[in-house]
Design a protein around this nucleic acid. Structure first.
Length: 275
DNA sequence: AGACATGTTGCTCA
DNA sequence: ATGAGCAACATGTC
């Protein structure tokens, strides 16, 4: 599920509940997949008794900083989510990591187990953190950078290109479709065939969708919507893409679905032409 | 039963 | 070397 804004939603869920709290116990379940990068004894020892100081999100990754220079990295994969329960929470089937603090249980649940947990100790953020591409909502995400990237990926369908995290960090399947729909670009167009005007629209809509999605899904300041997708306006493609017989909220014409760039893709044929 | 799922990686081929 | 395409990962749901 989680793309840029959902990841931020889940990070805030833990952060708002437990920043300043101290970890009393660390519970783990599956250790071969999600926790495969961890030295478990070291992980437990380092985290137990440490305090959650701060956290941040970069693209689809989260980093939780604990006292003792301890950094907990989480990637939610396809089906991961973070939630908060009372401290007496009994781990469920796919609760792979549970941090028990004085007041809460911070739970990382992931049925499909495509997620990942990292743990590093150091005064600075871990090396992998620095390798994440600069945010789409930063000056580094320039029109020129996008145009150059598209030129290099000229033969790939634009849908596939939008999913490449090295240039579009945090964009996932639904955000890519949302961007292309707003920019009126057919997802199967080869990246190298976009006209400069279309590249500019793509660049603009990437930023626009990131901003809208963060505001709607992850809330503002210290607020958090009660649930994912609760504040998403029906003017977005998002709310119509999976509905049987769904229609384009702008043209009112039927939506189309196909596998493009290896992923299920939804678009509005009335707005997005192949040409 | 079978298709399919909001992600990433590692392999093959050109 | 670089880019494109696709299977694989593991499990749940419709």
């Amino acid at each position: 599920m989680p793309e840029l804004a959902e990841v931020e939603f889940y990070r805030k869920r833990w952060a708002l509940a437990a920043t300043g709290d101290t970890v009393e116990r660390v519970l783990t379940h599956d250790t071969k997949k999600l926790l495969r990068h961890l030295d478990l004894p070291h992980f437990r020892r380092a985290l137990t008794g440490s305090t959650l100081l701060s956290s941040s999100t970069a693209a689809k990754q989260m980093a939780f900083r604990f006292s003792g220079d301890a950094w907990l990295g989480i990637h939610l994969g396809m089906s991961g989510e973070l939630s908060v329960f009372p401290a007496d929470h009994v781990p469920r089937k796919h609760d792979h990591l549970v941090l028990i603090t004085t007041r809460h249980a911070l739970v990382f649940n992931d049925p499909r187990m495509f997620g990942r947990v990292d743990f590093d100790v150091g005064a600075e953020p871990p090396p992998w953190w620095g390798k994440i591409a600069r945010p789409i909502l930063s000056p580094a995400f320039s029109f020129e950078a996008v145009a150059t990237f598209l030129a290099r990926r000229a033969r790939a369908p634009i849908k596939a290109v939008l999913l490449m995290q090295e240039q579009f960090p945090g964009i996932g399947n639904w955000m890519a479709d949302e961007v292309l729909w707003r920019a009126a670009i057919h997802p199967a167009r080869r990246a190298g065939t976009l006209r400069p005007k279309e590249v500019r629209a793509l660049w603009r809509e990437c930023r626009h969708v990131c901003r809208l999605a963060l505001a709607a899904i992850a809330g503002r300041g210290d607020t958090l919507p009660p649930d994912l997708n609760v504040g998403i306006p029906p003017s977005w493609l998002f709310l119509h893409r999976w509905q049987p017989g769904g229609t384009c909220p702008r043209s009112r014409r039927p939506l189309a679905h196909a596998t493009i760039g290896g992923r299920t893709t939804c678009w509005s044929p009335a707005r997005q032409k192949l040409k």
